[in-house]
Design a protein around this nucleic acid. Structure first.
Lengths: 245, 245
DNA sequence: ATAATAAACGTAAATATAACGTTTATTAAT
DNA sequence: ATTAATAAACGTTATATTTACGTTTATTAT
């Protein structure tokens, strides 16, 4: 038996990924496409976040995880519920109304927005039935609903959050270079960081563990590879507030 | 005409106040009381957050502000939407079911939780029709629904937020002493702070403005009064991230 | 006057940050 | 083989911030 949807409550997922080659912070979006019945008109052709209705018998967190799994196949990824969006006018522009009519859902929908941090290497978008694609946060396509606003607020929350917890490593492969981490911080925070100071600061963290391995196949001096130790981090930071009033 | 409720969506407000005399961080709660029809049994007698259904034609923010006004008379207070709560089992304990039946609302309700920071002196609970009362966060009474969890998460969010923005002044009178601010930080963060270091740090902030006034009616050396200048703060901190990766 | 008390001021070491310069290991071109 | 180019990695110093304390001052109650 199919689970029953709550008609006016959904979750939307801002799935962040990082491309270490292009140094680009990306968002996973799906194509929203609708033709008129006679196929002469494209009524809607834009991109939206992954999302779906919440089912009667699942928690909001479960709902978000279900959506992520449906669109990427991934489970147990870092997720954060960051805001609920539910203004009366959030789905009332003409394209959205056409779409809503085609999908038969209530126009006053509250959506609980989550963001996920995933390692881009973990997913394969080639065999993807949802036309999901990565887009650089800096060059988004035309976005439907109020999802541009949702992406923006997810980004703002991530900016703050990544300064107080080492969550950036969720966006990197298991083995990474110091410069990968710097590139990632620069992409998220939209700032330039001094490489020499950043490097020293990061290497001094107990939870940044050097491996007996260097980059291979690069055409310059190969960089040292490191891993993030969640174990060490959690041992150090049990209930340790870092206060700077 | 009465506005129409969305049946399964509500807002709940964690209203924080600070008592400078007892140095206690307080939460505003209302009594939930229900007798059996023959009045021989008290079915429910506990405390819950201020909250209500969201109306069809208002934003979530407006809904929260409306609830605050209804219960306290206050408008334009600092508010933050911090989390949505909507587990399927959140309103399924016996007392909650009795209450829900009496109020005829859906048991699978999603609530968008806000917290408000208010200056306790601004409200008068004597002429209050809702039996609203202040309770120290450290000595809460029996709490209904899942509101204990909501209060706990509001407090956690406040702990983090008050370290990055000068929101504590929303909880204080316009004129306050340095020690008031310290007491407040200590209450929120549940830590002890060195008075000499705290004092110097705070006084050095440009937005902490000394007044030509001292405490009156105290039985010790009267303390210097200060005010918080939002103007000065905003001029200094336009888009200035304080980065500490 | 004096004791008691909270407010207010002071100092010095340790740590962290910011702003730079220099050396090293590698590949690609000569 | 030598050399140029390049990114990785290491180093130095001045300044600012944090931490951990000790001391003085203004007031009220006795």
């Amino acid at each position: 038996m199919k689970p029953k949807k709550i008609p006016n409550i959904s979750v939307d997922c801002v799935v962040f990924g990082f491309d270490t080659t292009t140094k680009s912070l990306n968002v996973l979006l799906i194509n929203r496409y609708l033709e008129s019945k006679d196929s002469n008109d494209i009524l809607v052709d834009d991109y939206v976040l992954t999302g779906y209705h919440v089912y009667e018998d699942e928690t909001l967190d479960e709902s978000a995880s279900r959506v992520l799994k449906e669109f990427t196949g991934l489970t147990n990824q870092y997720k954060k519920q960051f805001k609920a969006f539910g203004n009366p006018d959030r789905l009332t522009n003409p394209k959205d109304l056409v779409w809503i009519k085609s999908e038969a859902f209530n126009s006053r929908t509250i959506t609980i927005a989550y963001y996920f941090l995933i390692n881009t290497e973990d997913i394969d978008l080639e065999n993807n039935t949802h036309y999901a694609k990565w887009f650089p946060l800096k060059q988004l396509p035309e976005i439907g609903f109020d999802h541009k606003e949702i992406i923006k607020e997810a980004h703002e929350d991530l900016k703050v959050k990544c300064l107080s917890e080492p969550i950036v490593f969720e966006l990197l492969p298991d083995k990474f270079t110091i410069n990968d981490v710097q590139d990632l911080y620069e992409s998220i925070l939209e700032i330039k960081i001094d490489n020499r100071n950043f490097r020293r600061k990061l290497i001094n963290k107990k939870y940044i563990v050097p491996l007996n391995e260097k980059q291979v196949g690069v055409s310059k001096k190969p960089a040292q590879l490191y891993m993030f130790s969640k174990d060490v981090y959690e041992k150090i930071y049990q209930k340790n507030y870092l206060i700077s009033i």
